[in-house]
Design a protein around this nucleic acid. Structure first.
Lengths: 238, 238
DNA sequence: TTATATAATTTGTCAATACAAATTATATAT
DNA sequence: ATATATAATTTGTATTGACAAATTATATAA
């Protein structure tokens, strides 16, 4: 890990430990540079990370302060893509039922969303995920074989996310999600145990690798009483 | 505007204009530094911005590339906080009906969400927003008088966001939002013209200023057929 | 005392340079 | 021709130094 990342990590720990209290000023950059035996520019790069995570407020001419509203923003993590299995690791038991597993050619919409030629086959996977044996989400994933390969029904029953990272050695990148509400459909009643008029929280997402290739276009339906999505909106850098 | 911001702006324009095609490599940093008559570090700071906006992919040892999936990410903007009035400026006519306007003491939940003492009064504003005369959203906003002052019903009928920025001269910062689905309630039927069993897309948000003070805790309810929320999830910097 | 101007402090920006790390191109050996 | 080792290229990290911009503290004047 590079130096500025190490410094960011250390400072983050201090904030989380309460060494620097919310609203309080951090030591000035020159002092931090001295303490970490590095240059001020490196301290600034470290502060960039903490600022990006909303841990600090920067005021030119004044100082760097711990966000007055800081209170260990743990649930923010839920807005990061790590797949359902990762998200609930240690918190609940995730079980998966593969309702459909197929390799076929993409529809026009799918090839467009995935940015692939219509001649490239895709995985079409339909899964029901349960948390501690309670129906949680219903997901239809489309993944192009040009990016993801050697996927099996057995893998789909475990964690596709882990497979992509560890077995294929690919790095997950950014994701764009569209969140909406919808009426209950037949599958929601059958698999999610919804009542006829229960609302559904629907997420349509495209997830990319770090090299920019899209590896998943998925639609997920949540029971309205089971899930909410936390998002963090930052002000633009320009 | 600082130099690296100007460079970022220029490069963004080129990408948006298609001068650099998706998937294509940008000129190498040394070349850009030469062209803009600046140093490579400045070019890197400019690239930081474009990377943050998902316009480019960076590969150490290889080069900097336009995101292969780039296609003018305009709707991403909808995930930024600019208030409803700003969001639809030029696209639709926003009209506002103030259903309730009151100054009172906060509830425990409100003082906690706003990070204020329970002795500090708050505005309690309940508004119906319409787009081109069609019911769009129903919002209950709580704002502390310690941050926002001189707010009137007349202001609430126009744009509170503009008032905060221009009249109070405050800078809007980050926002945390929790998105969920809910069943229709009486007010939804009355004001949003919902049917009894229509789902509602609900957003609970706390919005901060750049100095970290929270100025709004609000609950917004959308007709399920009128709005969806686009969010962009980035991989952490560490 | 109060307002105003000045100085000091602190963060932000930028340059020039050097080396590290990863990738890509080239040369070499088999 | 193919695989391997080497060199060249390109981005990433880091230092030092300098000045700009914003805020805060101090000194001065009324």
């Amino acid at each position: 890990m590079s130096l500025y990342q190490q410094v960011a990590k250390k400072l983050r720990q201090r904030i989380e430990a309460g060494n620097y209290q919310p609203g309080e000023a951090l030591p000035r950059q020159a002092e931090l540079a001295l303490e970490f035996n590095t240059s001020r520019v490196t301290i600034q790069k470290a502060l960039d990370i903490l600022f990006n995570d909303n841990l600090i407020i920067r005021k030119q001419g004044s100082g760097t302060y711990v966000s007055p509203t800081y209170s260990s923003a743990l649930d923010i993590i839920s807005s990061q893509y790590g797949g359902t299995t990762q998200l609930f690791a240690g918190k609940a038991t995730v079980s998966t039922q593969v309702l459909h597993f197929e390799i076929r050619l993409p529809t026009d919409e799918e090839s467009q969303k995935l940015h692939i030629e219509s001649t490239i086959p895709v995985y079409d996977i339909y899964r029901l995920r349960k948390l501690d044996n309670n129906p949680y989400e219903l997901t239809k994933s489309i993944m192009p074989l040009s990016v993801i390969s050697n996927l099996t029904k057995e893998v789909a029953e475990r964690s596709i996310f882990a497979f992509i990272q560890h077995d294929l050695g690919l790095e997950i990148g950014n994701a764009v999600r569209r969140i909406s509400a919808d009426k209950t459909k037949n599958d929601d009643i059958q698999y999610l145990d919804c009542e006829t008029h229960d609302p559904i929280l629907q997420v349509s997402q495209t997830v990319s690798l770090k090299d920019g290739r899209i590896f998943e276009y998925a639609q997920t339906r949540h029971r309205y009483d089971k899930g909410s999505i936390v998002v963090f909106n930052k002000v633009p850098m320009v």
